[in-house]
């Protein structure tokens, strides 16, 4: 594989954002086309405490990672972008093959 580092970052970032958007669209029954990186999860997308666990498990299944649920904090859930940043770190730590693909 000849990808450059920035290219890898963009690829992983794009994959993580795509996974989050798809999972969010399923959890909230919104059109995925209306969800962007800047979308706030609770205020704009209407995510609530009853749907957040299902969202996390869908992301885990899709990316092959496991969250330490007790380490999740409010700021990770501000927006699609902040959640993606947190998830990317988990992917790099837990699935280095996927992160480097």
């Amino acid at each position: 594989m000849e990808n450059t580092a920035p290219g890898n970052a963009t690829g992983l970032h794009g994959q993580v954002v795509g996974t989050i958007v798809t999972s969010l669209a399923e959890a909230t029954q919104l059109d995925p086309g209306t969800i962007g990186e800047g979308s706030t999860l609770f205020d704009e997308l209407g995510l609530d405490s009853t749907t957040v666990l299902g969202l996390l498990m869908a992301i885990e299944e899709e990316l092959g990672i496991e969250f330490e649920t007790d380490s999740l904090e409010q700021h990770h859930f501000e927006s699609v972008g902040t959640l993606a940043a947190f998830v990317e770190v988990q992917v790099v730590e837990q699935v280095p093959d996927l992160a480097g693909a």
């Binding site: 999860l41 609770f42 205020d43 995510l47 609530d48 405490s49 957040v52 666990l53 996390l56 649920t69 007790d70 999740l72 409010q74 859930f77």
Partner: peptide, 10 residues
Amino acid sequence: GLPRLAFGSD
């Protein structure tokens, strides 16, 4: 029990 994830303005 289940993870408690009470975020947002709830």
